[in-house]
Amino acid sequence: MPLLEVNNLKQHFISKKGFLSEKRVVKAVDGVSLKVEKGKTLGVVGESGCGKSSLGRSILRLVQPTEGSVKFQGKEVTDLNALEMKKLRREMQIVFQDPYASLNPRSTIREILEAPLKIHNVGNKKERKKVIEELVERIGIRKDQLNNYPHEFSGGQRQRIGIARALALNPKLIVADEPVSALDVSVQSQVLNLMLELQQEMDLSYLFISHDLSVVQHISDQVAVMYLGKIVEFGDVERIYNHPMHPYTQALLSALPIPDPKQKRERIILEGDLPSPINPPSGCPFHTRCPFATKECKEVVPALEEKTDNHFAACIHI
């Protein structure tokens, strides 16, 4: 049984521009299915605006999904009541993109790290103190810095504090929403390595959301490629990176720098912009930009199908 199993999840938002004007539906997540295995990392990759952040929030029910099912350890999450949901929150946590925005500027680090323990009534004051001290030691922040405020730390340190907060309750799953994209490149690898070490030690599973293909390659076991609210390709990381099937994945990967300069790879330049999720194209959502699109692509919505062993793609031409 996978740790997390998502089936046909939809997250639609209604955007209304004031009364008298019509309602419009934004289909941020439009029928996503995926699995995260215990102790593994699923990378979700896509351009900004493709709905990957909404996907993470929807899975954690930070926004109530419009439709579909989310199963955690085999148990349906979307219809839990508030009390059951609170219990479940100990198991699944989130790390945010912006370490400047994700920590309350008016709380000390101690308060920030104690909050999860207090909310779930973990231990007494002394025990909580011990947990917090172990946590900061693990992420490389000194005990005497506990009474400092977030603005006194660097971006990398803050992100590590954000990770420590997510780990305070010993969760099984972490949704990491672009956790390193706001950091300097030199700091990115420190944080990624910390996440990998923690995964080993605590048997964590990650749903790792990012637009950065190299980062996803570095940390993921499996990868899902998202385009306009849908998953267009899914498979093990080596297969996706070495043998991409979907034209969109191929285009994305063609932009990656290659370690061997002598090796030549044709760069595929995508034409046009990402279409608006308010009026997504008919048929295959990618057909407006796809170099191989045919007439059929405008009409048929391609299903995500297993094309080769454990390698899924949503394209009628494969």
């Binding site: 929030r57 954690l60 930070l62 949901m85 609170k86 219990k87 929150r89 100990r90 946590q93 989130i94 945010f96 993109q97 912006d98 925005a101 994700s102 920590l103 309350n104 500027p105 709380s107 909050a115 999860p116 909310i119 779930h120 954000g162 907060r165 309750l169």
Partner: peptide, 22 residues
């Protein structure tokens, strides 16, 4: 919609706590 408020919700804090602490 700040991330630190969202973080608090993700931790399971009740609205009362979020309102007064965050």
């Amino acid at each position: 919609n700040s991330e630190f408020i969202e973080a608090s919700r993700a931790l399971g804090a009740n609205p009362f706590r979020i309102l007064f602490k965050e």
